[in-house]
Design a protein around this nucleic acid. Structure first.
Length: 549
RNA sequence: GCCCCGCUAGCUCAGUGGAUAGAGCAUCUGUCUUCUAAACAGAGGGUCGGGGGUUCGAAUCCCUCGCGGGGCACCA
């Protein structure tokens, strides 16, 4: 990609000044003002101390030494900065080179990765908070596939814990027309599951509780998982595997993990329970229960076996987990557990996203309400998709950095459905597709190849310029695992496309489809390149790229 | 009390230590007989939460205070 080529040329020039050893960060980045070109480096200032010379002198000398491969760019000093400008010729050639899937790069060399995301307790439907983790994890997975990683998408089904037992007990209660027990689940969907069970499990309502409850629990979880699978499918999300927690105990991995920790001195008994902690750590603060006094393993125990399943049994090189912020405190414990098991904690990458809070009442004046699945107080993901559509939902979530809390106002989201920025990008794509078909109708025999040297208008070259930046966005999003950079790029590219199109509205000789078939063909090449790139970027977000709107 | 995230335009948010801090929405003004107006052109709007510090240079890094969110279980 061109940014790498610029960086290499800059480093070569710096070496040419006689700078040896490790270089400071030369701060090569996008120039902010068009007058400064396309990329800029503050190399003059960065090297002033090392060379004990004036920044502007250094920058001047660097710019004269820089050799651009294929005449791709020019370098110019401005104060202590070195500014780089992509040449028009190079931009035109880029247009001809853009192919479907442009921007894909082999950054991963086939690295075996697991991306585990959206793993919500199977005790109720997904709500709008869960939608965030699902779309974030899915787009991270898409990015990693796009950049040469071997990705396994997994949903971890927490099947074997206090919450699911409470859920089972709540279903049992509803089956017998009783209120759920203390700490149980209150949503109406619990009644629905109970009615389905009455139909699907004949005689279940006559079984004693100790027999009925485990059966109901399993049945209810499977029903919920079916529903979750259907909900995420509406967002274009599919999993390679639904991994059930109880399989860890059936396979013996849980016991294996515990045995290993016992041998390495990480486990000790206290108050009848089995605790995890560092061998030299006698303090009580850092210790966590693995096996309860009643003999039941905790979720933490399952996670120990789950680590072995992923890193040793299934040999993933790295595991990326997407968690909501309310689990943040669990990160150090998981890292410590991985280390204690002899695994590399660095290979366990945990991405935390902040929560989605619900506002109720009139738009803009609503009160904040914390969603609660147990209390039955939430807006479901399905309802959101029903109201605004899958594309707008995905765009809405992906637009935000994982670090910001979302204050969600359903009424406002519905109102804004029609002005969601996703349509801006999709419209650009549809326009390009439309103009391309209009050109084919008007000109029966267009030249097979394009003479891109005819692309001379500034608005045409600006589209090409945006295309040049796309591989940077792909790399940065992948390296930082931050897909929210993509919609911002898509917006910029769509802007340049709309401007390009409008030049033809203002003056008809600037339309794509003109009398001159050669010129038409050249502009079509630009349309094609921009359309492919928009499509690729939208795909990574899981957003559709319509041919017409 | 301790830990994590946030505080940037009226609102929602971008912004790898660099030059004049950006976008969308909202407000106001223009542009459709035309390849799609779900668009384009333009205007107004900022003590980057407060205060210190590091640096040639800070919205960005460090310290501190304030406000908001989350977490500190034999829940997950």
């Amino acid at each position: 990609m061109v940014r790498d080529a610029i960086h290499r040329a800059l480093v070569d020039a710096v070496r040419g000044l006689g700078v040896d050893g490790e270089l400071p960060d030369l701060e090569l980045g996008r120039a902010k003002v068009p007058a400064h070109g396309d990329y800029a480096s503050s190399a003059g200032m960065k090297l002033a101390r090392v060379l004990r010379r004036r920044p502007d002198e250094i920058a001047g000398e660097l710019s004269s030494k820089i050799v651009a491969p294929d005449g791709a760019f020019t370098a110019e000093a401005a104060g202590g900065y070195v500014n780089f400008r992509l040449t028009d010729d190079w931009l035109r050639r880029l247009v001809a080179d853009v192919h479907p899937g442009y921007g894909a790069r082999d950054l991963g060399h086939g690295e075996r990765l697991q991306v585990e995301f959206g793993s919500i307790n199977p005790t109720g439907p997904l709500h709008i908070g869960h939608g965030r983790g699902v779309t974030l994890g899915d787009s991270i997975a898409r990015l990693l596939v796009f950049t040469g990683h071997s990705v396994h998408r997994e949903y971890y089904v927490n099947s074997d814990n206090t919450q699911t037992r409470r859920f089972g007990a709540s279903v049992y209660a509803r089956l017998h027309d009783m209120e759920p027990p203390e700490g149980g689940y209150l949503g109406d969907y619990v009644k629905e599951v109970a009615e389905m069970a009455r139909r699907d499990l004949p005689g279940i309502d006559r079984e004693p509780e100790e027999v009925a409850e485990p059966r109901l629990r399993r049945y209810a979880m499977e029903k919920v998982i079916e529903q979750i699978r259907a909900s995420v499918a509406r967002l274009g999300v599919r999993y390679d595997e639904w991994f059930w927690e109880d399989s860890i105990w059936q396979s013996g991995l849980g016991k294996q993990a515990i045995d290993r920790l016992r041998e390495s001195g990480h486990l000790r008994e206290r108050d009848g329970a089995l605790w995890f902690g560092e061998p030299d750590d006698e303090g009580e603060e850092e210790q966590r229960v693995v096996i309860r006094a009643n003999g039941q393993p905790t979720y933490f125990a399952s996670d120990l076996g789950y680590l072995l399943s992923r890193f040793e049994q299934r040999t993933f090189n790295r595991v990326i987990e997407v968690w909501a912020a309310d689990h943040h405190g669990y990160v150090p414990r998981m890292k410590a557990a991985a280390a204690a098991l002899g695994l590399d904690p660095e290979k366990l990458v945990i991405i935390i996203h902040q929560l989605v809070n619900l506002k109720e009442g009139a738009p803009r004046s609503g009160q904040k309400v914390k969603m609660s699945k147990r209390a039955g107080r939430f807006v479901t993901l399905d309802e959101l998709i029903d109201r605004v559509g899958s594309d707008a939902v995905r765009y809405f979530y992906l637009l935000r950095s994982p670090d910001t809390t979302i204050e969600f106002d359903l009424e406002l989201a519905v109102t804004q459905g029609n002005e969601n920025p996703v349509y801006y990008a999709q419209y650009a794509h549809a326009r390009l597709a439309n103009v391309e078909s209009a050109a084919r109708e008007r000109h029966a025999n267009l030249p097979a190849s394009a003479d891109v040297s005819l692309l001379t208008q500034p608005w045409e070259l600006d589209v090409a310029r945006q295309l040049a930046f796309w591989p940077d966005v792909v790399e940065d999003s992948t390296r930082l695992l931050e897909p929210h950079r993509i919609p911002y790029y898509v917006h910029d590219l769509a802007t340049s496309v709309h401007r390009f199109y409008h030049a033809g509205n203002a003056q008809s000789e600037h339309r794509v489809v003109v009398d001159d078939v050669t010129l038409t063909r050249a502009r079509l090449e630009l349309c094609r390149a921009a359309r492919h790139t928009l499509k690729t970027a939208l795909d990574l977000m899981g957003v559709s790229a319509p041919e017409r709107m």
